[in-house]
Simulated assay, not measured.
Amino acid sequence: MPVYFIGEDENGCSPIKVGVAKDIGRRQSALQTGNPLELRLLGWITSADDFRTERDLHQRLASRRVRGEWFHIEPTEVLPFLVEAGERGFVAKNADAFEITGYDRDAVPEYLGVWEWADLEIDECCPFCGCLCGMRFQEASQMYYCIQCDALTDFSEPFPDDHHGPDD
């Protein structure tokens, strides 16, 4: 059961709820039912002890508590927790993550971005699954590889149909 971060979209995604759920999409729907503001998934962390991870996050954010499991933090303040989790940390992908906006001087594509609230590069975050393990370049294949979702790409093709997030 991942530890999720869900924010109120109409308020810049703050406050943010930090909770645990087997099915994040179903939990988001249940929370949405009681909330007049649009809710948006920001990211999640998987761990061997999700309830301990949730408890630790609640303790670290205690001074920012609004009510229950809701905290007055911004989406950019969630990123350090996700990065700290490494390959167990995921950002909720931007729907247009694969819109190529240009190429750098090494001919590596520059895309719109995986996460709306931070400029994450492919070596930091997989644009296919949102894992903060990043894409690694493989010399043998001359392609980029994600250890989490097994995506293998040279970025010449748009988002493969067989790589999705937890609720896609």
Rank of each mutant, 00 (worst) to 15 (best):
E77C: 04
L82R: 03
I122W: 14
F81S: 01
I73H: 00
Y111W: 11
P109F: 07
F90T: 01
W44G: 03
C125R: 09
G86Y: 06
V91N: 10
R88W: 10
R65N: 04
Y103Q: 10
R64L: 11
E116G: 12
M135C: 07
L120A: 11
L41Y: 07
Y4Q: 01
A21T: 04
L79G: 05
R88E: 12
K17D: 00
V66Q: 06
G19R: 03
R27C: 01
G25S: 08
Q138R: 13
R88N: 11
F51G: 03
E157F: 10
P160I: 03
G89T: 03
Q138T: 09
T46I: 14
G34A: 12
D150T: 11
G102V: 12
D49G: 08
Y145C: 04
N35I: 02
N11V: 11
R60P: 00
P36M: 14
W44T: 01
T101G: 13
G89V: 03
C13E: 08
F137Q: 04
P166A: 06
F81E: 03
T153F: 01
L82D: 04
G89E: 05
C126H: 05
I6G: 00
F159D: 07
W115D: 02
F98R: 05
T76A: 10
R27D: 01
P160R: 02
L112Y: 14
P160Y: 07
T33S: 15
D106Q: 12
Q142K: 07
A151F: 00
T101C: 15
I45Y: 02
D168F: 04
D167L: 08
C131Y: 05
C126P: 03
E84L: 03
D154G: 05
W115K: 05
E116W: 13
E38G: 13
R26K: 14
M143R: 12
R27Q: 14
E74H: 15
R27F: 03
D96H: 15
T101F: 14
I122C: 05
G12K: 06
A107H: 13
A95K: 14
P2W: 02
M135L: 13
C126N: 07
D106I: 09
R88P: 01
L41T: 12
V114H: 08
F98Y: 10
P127E: 11
D56S: 07
A30N: 15
C133M: 12
K93A: 12
E121K: 15
L79S: 03
L37E: 14
P158N: 12
L37S: 15
R136M: 03
T101W: 11
Y144P: 05
C13T: 07
G113A: 06
V108S: 06
E77I: 03
C149E: 02
A118M: 05
E110D: 10
D49M: 08
W70F: 11
E139Q: 09
Y4M: 06
F5S: 00
D9F: 15
D154E: 01
E77H: 05
N94G: 02
F159S: 06
E10T: 15
Y103A: 09
E8Q: 14
D106Y: 14
T33V: 15
L112G: 11
R67G: 00
I6K: 00
G130F: 09
M1Y: 09
G34K: 06
